[in-house]
C-alpha cells in the first residue's frame, strides 16, 4: 500500500457533505450509486471517506449494473399479526462489493445462495427508500 498523501481531494472533502449523506441524498432522488476509487479502481460499499483497499481519498460515485448474486440468506420468523416472515440477504454485486438487502417477488424459501438478482429502489423498514432486489428475469 502506497503512503497516503494529502491532495486537493482532501481540501474539497472538508467543505462537502460526508459520503453517508451523499448516498442518502442520491437514494432519495431514486439513484443508487456506489463509490469507485480513482487511485486503485476498487469499488467501495458502504460509502466511505477513504478507500479501504488503498487508503486514497479519491472516491467518486458510479452507477453499478445492479446485478448481483445472493451470498447468504435468512428468513426472520415473525408472527402474522406483526407482519409475518421476511427475508434478509447478503448480495454480492458484480462490482465486487457486498450489501445487506431483501429479495422481493419470490417465496422466502426459494431464495438461496447463488440466486441471480437485480437491484431496484424500494421501501425499507422505516418507510424510507432502500435498495432491494428481485430475481433476474429468467432466473429463479
Amino acid at each position: 500500500m502506497a503512503a497516503i498523501t494529502l491532495d486537493s481531494e482532501m481540501t474539497d472533502m472538508k467543505n462537502s457533505p460526508g459520503p453517508d449523506a451523499v448516498f442518502a441524498a442520491k437514494l432519495a432522488e431514486g439513484v443508487f450509486e456506489i463509490q469507485k476509487c480513482g487511485a486503485c479502481g476498487a469499488h467501495v460499499f458502504h460509502p466511505r471517506v477513504i478507500c479501504p483497499t488503498c487508503g486514497s481519498a479519491d472516491l467518486g460515485w458510479v452507477a453499478p449494473t445492479g446485478r448481483g448474486t445472493i451470498y447468504a440468506r435468512t428468513v426472520v420468523r415473525r408472527k402474522p399479526e406483526r407482519g409475518g416472515d421476511y427475508n434478509v440477504v447478503l448480495v454480492d454485486l458484480e462490482e465486487g462489493v457486498r450489501m445487506m438487502s431483501r429479495v422481493d417477488g419470490i417465496a422466502h424459501d426459494e431464495i438461496a445462495a447463488g440466486l441471480k438478482v437485480s437491484a431496484s429502489i424500494g421501501e425499507g423498514a422505516d418507510g424510507g427508500p432502500a435498495v432491494v432486489f428481485r430475481p433476474e428475469r429468467g432466473a429463479s
Partner: peptide, 22 residues
C-alpha cells in the same frame, strides 16, 4: 447499522444465521 437497518435483521441473531446459512 445504517446500511442494515432498512432490512431489519434481528440483532445479533440474524447475523449469525447468515453465517450458518453460508
Amino acid at each position: 447499522p445504517t446500511y442494515e437497518a432498512p432490512y431489519q435483521p434481528m440483532f445479533p441473531l440474524s447475523s449469525y444465521a447468515l453465517a450458518a446459512d453460508r
